[in-house]
Amino acid sequence: MAYRLKMRIWRGDKDGGALGDYDVEVSEGEVVLDAIHRVQATQAGDLAVRWNCKAGKCGSCSAEVNGKPRLMCMCRLSDFDEEETITVTPMRSFPVIRDLVTDVSFNYEKAKELPSFSPPPRDADNKRRMQQIDVERGQEFRKCIECFLCQNTCHVVRDHEENKKAFAGPRFFLRYAELDMHPLDTNDRRELAQDAAGLGMCNITKCCTEVCPEGIKITDNAIIPMKERVADKKFDPLVWLGNKIGVRNKDNEGRTEL
């Protein structure tokens, strides 16, 4: 079942690089990351690649395989023709450190800007109560493995480096939505999501949803509902009037605005 796979792997660093040609033995049931590892073990010991779990659970081995953002560990060779050359390049939206390893610090910076969960005190018996149906909305978003493929794909930053400052990206819209929908959270993050995180810049092309290896419906279940929540607060004429004449001076549903 073994055969020789032709690969082109981008080698280089911040100063530039090029695709290198490799010819490596692979076998049935293997994934792109296996092929990369075999190149590393037998032909290029210093080939830089990030990986950890090799099971689609940690989100470390993100790259672009034939131009498509993928986890290399979940990218089966059987999905390609044996004759086909597989080209692996680093994620395009982040600066290259070396070979397939990119500097994803953008995401860790954005994570720091996000106000955290803020619960009320526990119940009298020292427990907390939430219904399964209410936690399930947030649970979908917490499946996120932080592979940052959605961030890499989102054209707001992929093609416009200058937007990075004002735009947190789909991964963090998920987080805003998760907290806004958390049954116990006491903060209102809608203004923050709209203004500081740049939710308004998203024009729901759903590219992020398409590349999510966890199958999270980022656009439909997180971004659009968040946009609606922002719109209710900002643009609903009755809410606006209520706020204006003081009948309804706050629309935070008992939460604290951040």
Binding site: F117, P119, R122, K127, R129, M130, Q131, Q132, V135, H182
Partner: peptide
């Protein structure tokens, strides 16, 4: 307390 969302019992625990 820090935001984990565990699966719940019928009573919400």
């Amino acid at each position: 307390d820090w935001g984990a969302l565990f699966d719940r019992t019928d009573d919400g625990l």
